[in-house]
């Protein structure tokens, strides 16, 4: 069964969209990632214009993450106090990152720096998470272990604005998660991703949060971030295709429920090793992409928002319906 996507301007089989949404929603509910790194390339592969794919993806993440947040909330996996702290830090970091990108682009060759940063950061985070989780899996269930108090932790606990995060069962200065999220926000902006890949390991390894709560809290933050992105993309670029987003959401909301429920059956280390494997697979794919000579030097530009204003009048009105309609 095919359907015409009003903003993308193409006809597509709706089961492809529902299926892709279900896959990404499942990963989202299970691991706390938005899934944009996976879904946007899939949409581009089936012929959706890149700008519409990226913007509509944000809209469907709102649906998938709200479904998953609700499921995780009932499971007791959402730390709202921590989530709001992380969200505020992440937004400031994202703002700084956007300005940094402008400077880098003005200096030239920013895209190369972004790609190399992406591979290095994701490779290091994924690799260290994989090794640590594997070690923990061999030792036994994570739930049985407490987090060791190190000298670093002692130093952090002497910082001002100490707050107890009940759901996560950790005490931190507000400055710690706030600062870490500024850094993650900057990196996420530079790399053009949501940042959950870095946020979840950071919450587990640096803030000492349980993996399940880290997943639920990451989704809480993703929900608000993507809601903001969806609104901005709609207002500035008119590239959010609501029909596309809702078809993807039809699959992803169900997938997110399944993923969130599956977390009950898995231990924290098992969740982290799946996330690490996924991160390493993405790194592997990117490495192949940069090492193998491309068959085509051109590829569709996914982030048109940055140079949208430089297009001439007819370009800006590309998606405008003809006056005789």
């Amino acid at each position: 069964m095919s359907i015409f996507l009003p903003i993308a301007g193409i006809t597509i089989n709706l089961w492809i969209l529902v299926g892709a949404g279900a896959l990404v929603g499942f990963l989202s509910g299970l691991l706390g990632v938005g899934g944009g790194f996976l879904l946007t390339p899939i949409l581009m592969l089936v012929g959706i214009p890149p700008t519409v794919a990226a913007a509509s993806d944000s809209c469907q993440i709102v649906a998938a993450s709200s479904s998953a947040v609700a499921a995780h909330f009932r499971l007791g996996n959402v730390d709202f106090k921590m989530g709001i702290t992380l969200l505020s830090g992440g937004l400031i970091g994202a703002g700084v990152g956007v300005q940094l990108i402008k400077v880098l682009r003005a200096l030239g060759n920013a895209d190369s720096l972004i790609t190399i940063t992406y591979i290095l950061v994701l490779g290091m985070v994924g690799g260290s998470m994989f090794v640590a989780s594997l070690r923990n899996l061999r030792r036994g269930p994570m739930a049985a272990k407490g987090h060791k108090r190190t000298s670093r932790a002692g130093l952090l606990q002497r910082l001002p604005l100490q707050v107890y995060f009940q759901r996560s069962n950790v005490r931190h200065s507000l400055l710690v998660p706030f600062s870490l999220c500024i850094i993650v926000g900057i990196l996420a902006s530079i790399m053009g991703v949501g940042g959950a890949f870095m946020m979840v390991p950071m919450m587990v390894y640096l803030l000492g949060m349980p993996a399940h709560v880290a997943v639920g809290t990451s989704l809480f933050q993703t929900l608000f971030t993507c809601a903001g992105v969806t609104y901005m993309q709609s207002a500035a670029n008119h590239t959010v295709d609501l029909v596309l987003a809702l078809l993807l959401a039809a699959g992803s909301t169900l997938g997110a429920q399944a993923g969130a429920r599956l977390t009950r059956l898995l231990r924290g280390d098992q969740l982290l090793i799946i996330l690490a494997t996924l991160a390493l697979l993405v790194v592997g794919k990117m490495l192949v992409g940069v090492l193998v000579a491309p068959s085509n030097l051109l590829s569709p530009a996914a982030h048109a928002a940055l140079d949208w204003r430089s297009l001439p009048g007819p370009g800006r009105q590309f998606w405008r319906i003809p006056p005789n309609v």
Binding site: A63, L223, T230
Partner: peptide, 11 residues
């Protein structure tokens, strides 16, 4: 709509 769809499916 996206948020309502998500919460609706959860419901």
């Amino acid at each position: 709509i996206a948020a309502l769809a998500g919460f609706g499916i959860d419901f």
